[in-house]
């Protein structure tokens, strides 16, 4: 038995080593850099500045007091708000739509395989490609969506979907929901197919309407699986980078936390400030996750 445990650790060593090198250590260094004044040009010429990147107070000789740092940076909080709002709306829509698709696919009908294959297509398309495809369809001058809406008389002037302040977030949401609803639908479908048929039969014999069966029987039974799917999607949505970077570049309305962190790190030459943003991003996502698990009383049974 002892020998088996020693073997276990031996077998785990390569994985633990690689994860330490690519995840653990880099994360600790990011946190460390957030307490320095390092710049991209010369990472080694850095001084320890404490919490200055997060919050600092500057008293001018004139008696005026200036506050500086991430915690009072309106651009950062705007990015936090954008990201959280995006995550909540997109995951909510994906769950509802995913549920509808899953319920439809759970019924028996000829051609079910074809429908299931079709919904796998958005999932298989690389995010960058879907961003470009939709950018083209949403193009203000030549995009098919404006043309169709104009012909149907739903709008009277062409809309600059990805550029204008009112619609940029909507555009991002449309593409994200299109791309990830299939994932949600497949996870919910898997849960639906695990349901014991007898329970549904009994409910039907008792004269329950399909609507009642769904709310009283099906939904409570698949709730744990849905909750897990929701948290996976939410964690993914909270770190969104590529879709927004390509679909609506340089747009204050859609700038996410990840985009804010990366542009400070590598484009604005504020490496330390970007590290602070990365650290705070990690904390925010961590806290939201813990809150969700607590509130939803979720349990991950380790290993299964």
């Amino acid at each position: 038995m002892r020998r088996r445990v020693r073997t276990a650790w031996l077998f785990l060593t390569p994985m633990l080593f690689v994860l330490a090198v690519v995840a653990g250590w880099p994360f600790l260094r990011t946190v460390y850099y957030s307490f320095t004044d390092a710049s991209l040009a010369d990472l080694d010429a850095r001084r320890w500045v404490g919490f200055d990147n997060y919050f600092s107070v500057l008293r001018l000789p004139s008696g005026r007091v200036l506050y500086d740092g991430l915690l009072v940076d309106p651009v950062w909080w705007r990015a936090v708000w954008n990201t959280v709002r995006f995550a909540v709306v997109s995951v909510a829509c994906e769950t509802v739509l995913g549920m509808i698709v899953a319920l439809a696919l759970n019924a028996e009908f000829p051609g079910r395989g074809i429908v299931r294959a079709a919904i796998l297509i958005p999932w298989a398309i690389p995010t960058i490609v879907s961003a470009k495809m939709w950018q083209w369809m949403l193009n203000d001058q030549f995009g098919i969506i404006n043309v169709v809406l104009l012909n149907l008389g739903l709008i009277d002037t062409k809309i600059a979907w990805t550029a204008s302040a009112d619609t940029a977030m909507i555009a991002v949401l449309i593409v994200d929901i299109w791309k990830t609803t299939p994932f949600m639908a497949l996870l919910i479908l898997a849960a639906l197919q695990m349901l014991p048929r007898e329970i549904l039969e009994v409910a039907k014999l008792d004269g329950a309407s399909p609507w009642q069966i769904f709310w009283r029987v099906t939904l409570p039974l698949i709730r744990p699986a849905v909750m897990v799917a929701v948290i996976f999607r939410a964690l993914d949505a909270l770190r969104i980078f590529d879709l927004i970077y390509v679909l609506t570049p340089n747009n204050v309305q859609t700038k996410s936390m990840s985009i804010f962190a990366r542009e400070n790190l590598f484009e604005f030459d504020k490496f330390a400030y970007g590290s602070a943003a990365s650290t705070l991003l990690f904390l925010i996502i961590g806290l939201l996750t813990i809150a969700y698990i607590r509130i939803g009383r979720l349990s991950f049974d380790g290993g299964r």
Partner: peptide, 16 residues
Amino acid sequence: VSMFPQVAALAGLFEI
């Protein structure tokens, strides 16, 4: 780790 926001490791990975 698999759900980890990758940006949080970006600065340190760049250094490595």
